[in-house]
Structure formats: structure tokens, C-alpha cells
Simulated scan of single mutants.
Amino acid sequence: MTDDINQFVLPIIPIAPDGFKSGFVGIIGRPNVGKSTLMNQLVGQKIAITSPVAQTTRNRLRGILTTEKSQIIFVDTPGIHKPHHTLGKIIVKNAQAAINSVDVILLVVDSSVPSGGGDRYIIELLENTKNPVILGLNKSDQQSSEYQPLDESYGNLIKEYNWPIIKFSALTGEGLETLQNTLIEKLDPGPYYYPPDLVTDQPERFIMGELIREQILQLTRQEVPHSVAVVIEQVEETPNITRVFAAINVERSSQKGIIIGQQGSMLKAIGTAAREQIQKLIAGEVYLKLFVKVEPKWRQSNLRLAEFGYRLEK
């Protein structure tokens, strides 16, 4: 009898050639400056959710870009902000922890608006870091004709540090080749950390849940978004279709009503849009069933936060 374990083939991580560079790049910044959009563009695939709503990213998410001469592991961190609840404190602490656990730091700012106190706060956090720092001026496509004073407002914040400044648009891709080359220059020679064809280290279930949460963020512009946690409870795979059962957890009954909508219209819209995104992720047909549950004050409960996948990262 053939041992079942022989039926599984582990992914092959090749030996890096001479001169190969690799390392971890932490993408940090205030909420809603385009960090997730940037990482999606750089790795060439949607692995992080994006939304006009601030503080979209909650977990540190890794995106992997492999070229012939390098492998960059991007660590997309939650926006650094003043927390107002236990979940917020975990989010910010995880973002701050990323500063000391990467090889290069990419500080992303919104160059379509002047610099502010939030940017100064993050720069102060970086004062004592020994890692190379690059200042990324994102949203160049949204700048007005008076862009020079905007750029200078950020340049003046870091002039004593002599950090390189790269201007780009994560939305259009303009300037990203220069950014990528600058990041590679800052990396040391190293091995492949992941197989070359991998674009993220997160399991499919996690990304499925994030794709559902993204549609909630985009379709419900009320008090609901930050009170939502999506849990993938079951995935059934067959040759023809993948069935996904997910629970949308909210804090109040009124929020449940908003998510469901009149005669279930909102929940149907969320499910339809999320199913389309999940089908792109797995490249196959998907049946998606959504349930809405009320979990009072889950963002204040360490037990519920752990159950929903939010915990302090080391």
C-alpha cells in the first residue's frame, strides 16, 4: 500500500543565484494613504482589500514579489492612528511592531494633501530605527498644479534624516518601477524565503473573509464598517464548485439590520460582489452563503478578538 503522505508534493524553494537580494519591506503610514493598493500593484494581484473607509487593514498582510534577481516580501500594516478600543490598540501595536521586524521601511504618505501631525508622529517613531527608510509620496495622480509646496511639506519633515524620496501613484502605477528598484538597492543579498510563484503567505480562507469585508466597507458607508468581523466557518470543495459559508459579526442589532437591508437587498448585494472576487481568487465557481450575527462589544473582548483572528503579533 502506498503511503498517503507520498501523494503530497511540497512547494520547491530554489537556491538563490549569486547576487540575489531578498528581504522584508514594511509599508507603514497613516490610515487611507494607499498602502494596500500599493502592495496589490507591486505584487500584481489583489491580496489586500482596499476601501475609501479609513483603517481598512487590520492584520499584517504579506505580499511577495519575486523577480529574476530579487524577492521582496512586503508587509502591509494597519494605519497608525490613535486607538479608541481594544481592537484599535492591537492594530496599532502590530503596526509599530512591524517597524522593528523588517529590513527596509517604506513610509507612505498622501502627497495630494499637506503633511500633518499624524505624519510627524510616525516619523518620530522611526527616529531610532536602524533600518533604511524610504519616504513614498503616493497619490501623485491626485495632486493639483500646486504640487511643489505639497512635496516640500513632506521633504521638510525628513530633511534631517536624509531619507530618499520617491514619488508615485499606486493607482496608475506611475513611478512604481523607480520605487521597486530603490527598495531592491536597500536590501542585502539573501535567499528565497518563499517559492517564486507565491504572492502571499496568507491562507485562502483569510483572503476570502477579507474580500467579503471589503464589500461591506464599500457598500455600507455608515457606522457599520469598523464593527464588522467576518469569519469563514466552512469551505466545501468539489470538482465543479466551491461552497463557502461565512458569518458576518456585528456589535448591535441595528447594524445587523443595515447589513441585511430591506428584504435582504444589502446582504444580497454584498454576497454577489464578494462572490465575484472570490471566484477570481480561486479561479473557479463559488457558492457563497452569508449569515449575520450580533456579538455585543466584540471589539472590547480579548476572547472574541482572538476567536475572530485578531491578536498581538510578535
Score class of each variant (00 low, 15 high):
19 G>C: 04
86 T>L: 11
35 K>L: 06
10 L>A: 15
204 E>T: 14
53 V>Q: 15
14 P>I: 01
277 Q>T: 01
204 E>L: 14
212 I>A: 07
55 Q>L: 11
271 G>W: 09
297 K>T: 12
219 L>Q: 15
19 G>E: 02
297 K>F: 14
271 G>V: 05
243 R>F: 04
285 E>N: 15
3 D>S: 15
208 M>G: 02
131 N>R: 15
293 K>C: 05
101 S>I: 04
215 Q>M: 13
260 I>Y: 09
268 K>T: 04
48 A>Q: 12
123 I>E: 07
94 N>F: 11
110 D>M: 03
55 Q>H: 15
300 Q>H: 15
298 W>L: 13
24 F>W: 05
72 I>A: 05
65 L>P: 00
253 S>N: 13
259 I>T: 04
54 A>V: 08
88 G>I: 03
171 L>F: 15
312 L>S: 13
244 V>E: 01
75 V>G: 04
43 V>W: 02
236 E>Q: 14
79 G>Y: 14
232 I>Q: 05
197 D>K: 08
117 G>N: 04
42 L>F: 04
225 P>N: 10
226 H>N: 11
125 L>Q: 02
262 Q>T: 09
218 Q>F: 09
118 G>R: 12
5 I>G: 01
50 T>W: 06
208 M>K: 12
115 S>L: 00
20 F>Q: 02
120 R>A: 14
311 R>E: 09
32 N>A: 08
151 D>P: 00
161 Y>K: 07
85 H>I: 01
179 L>G: 13
230 V>D: 07
210 E>L: 08
269 A>N: 02
284 G>W: 09
135 L>K: 06
299 R>K: 13
87 L>N: 06
33 V>G: 06
237 E>F: 03
29 G>Q: 09
180 Q>V: 00
219 L>R: 15
172 T>F: 13
298 W>T: 13
52 P>G: 07
137 L>D: 00
51 S>L: 00
211 L>Q: 02
47 I>Y: 12
238 T>Y: 10
203 P>V: 10
148 Q>K: 13
257 G>V: 03
180 Q>C: 08
113 V>I: 13
137 L>W: 03
31 P>D: 11
177 E>R: 13
185 E>W: 00
54 A>G: 07
49 I>H: 12
125 L>W: 00
313 E>M: 12
48 A>K: 09
252 R>N: 04
